[in-house]
Simulated assay, not measured.
Amino acid sequence: MITGHGDDIFQYPDVRYNFSSNVYPFGPSLRLKEHLRQCVDKIGCYPSPLAGNLVELIARKEEVTSSKVLVTSGAVEAFYLIAELFAGKRSLIFTPSFSEYEDACLRFGHCIEFRPHCEASTADYSTHDLVWICNPNNPDGAVYDTAFLCQKIKEHPATLFVVDEAYIEFTKCATSLVPLVQEHGNIVVVKSMTKRYAIPGLRLGYLMAGHKITDALKRMVMPWRINTLAIEAGIFCLQERDSEPFPVGRLLDESLRVQQDINRLKGFRVCPSSTTFFLVEGPVEASILKNRLAEEHGILIRDASNFRGLGERHFRVSVRAEDENNILINVLKQWS
């Protein structure tokens, strides 16, 4: 999907409050920006073909062997690579969820079955080659039970579980399945570095899987896909930024407050979320609300009506600082 994602700030002339993207709301650190300025001269040379130095740091952080790690150009590239590796296979996608799973599968000829999330416990996983899981789920912030996922992965060794953990640092209710990568060959865990470190413009993510899958993917990818500044940013973040406390508790408290305040507005219904983002069903079409908020108030929300399984009035909000959140709530009152 080239268009229709959040963070389409480029379409509007004066967006001051961006609630549309599930990224750490306070931006990249000043020290990271300064570090990248000092690294600019490095763009005169080719980067490492597979971002080897960054791979080693990721492996150390995640406690997996480096041969099981592949750095990608954002988490999205990981989904397309996996779909290509298993071209023509049968995929199960629970909805609503991130649209790029479907787009990647369609591009490489997968036969896709869509099931609502409420049927995850009753679905027949054995009839599918791949199952795509977003945990926490985008766009509604729903969290899968860890024991449930572990059980399904162990019960269905012939089915590959692609687990997207792009937002796992934005909740306290989900547990990473990375430890299963060491034990089971039928799981791929995908992570994003753009959300936690607020660097979506640098396009940086990674996947972890068994040797058979990562070796096959490494034979597929082009060399030098990950640019020098992205690699430098990733190394800096893992070495320096991770030493700083991530205020997930404060963000979650604010998310809960904003959810409750919006839910009190007549005509607005919030889907409860355990993350820093959540779905809202509003009183008018989300596309109309989005355009009016952007053009008249400089506020950008995510029109979520293009998520499979959602309606035309659904939109998504990712919380920001308290004063900015209050501005959003006060503007929405005008539509109540």
Rank of each mutant, 00 (worst) to 15 (best):
F79Q: 13
P49T: 03
V188Y: 00
P28C: 10
E119H: 11
Y197C: 08
Y80N: 14
E232W: 14
I58F: 02
A87P: 09
Y46D: 03
D303T: 07
Q239D: 12
R16L: 12
E295H: 01
F94C: 08
N263C: 11
A286H: 05
R219S: 11
L202H: 04
H184D: 10
Q38W: 05
S73V: 07
R196P: 02
R241P: 08
C111M: 01
S67Y: 01
C111V: 07
N330C: 13
D140G: 09
M193C: 12
G27I: 02
H156E: 12
R225N: 05
P179A: 07
A158W: 02
I153S: 09
S318T: 15
A233N: 05
F108K: 00
I213W: 00
A209W: 03
R31A: 12
L310Y: 10
I43S: 04
A166E: 03
H117E: 02
L251T: 04
N137R: 13
Y167A: 12
I187N: 05
K333N: 15
L300W: 06
D140E: 12
C173D: 10
S126M: 08
V280D: 06
L81N: 07
C271R: 12
K33M: 15
C39E: 14
I58T: 09
P247M: 00
L279P: 02
L202I: 02
F307W: 05
S66T: 12
T171C: 05
L251H: 09
P136K: 01
W132G: 06
R37Y: 07
L130S: 11
N263P: 09
R115I: 02
F86H: 15
I199S: 04
S126K: 15
V284W: 13
L106W: 05
F246S: 04
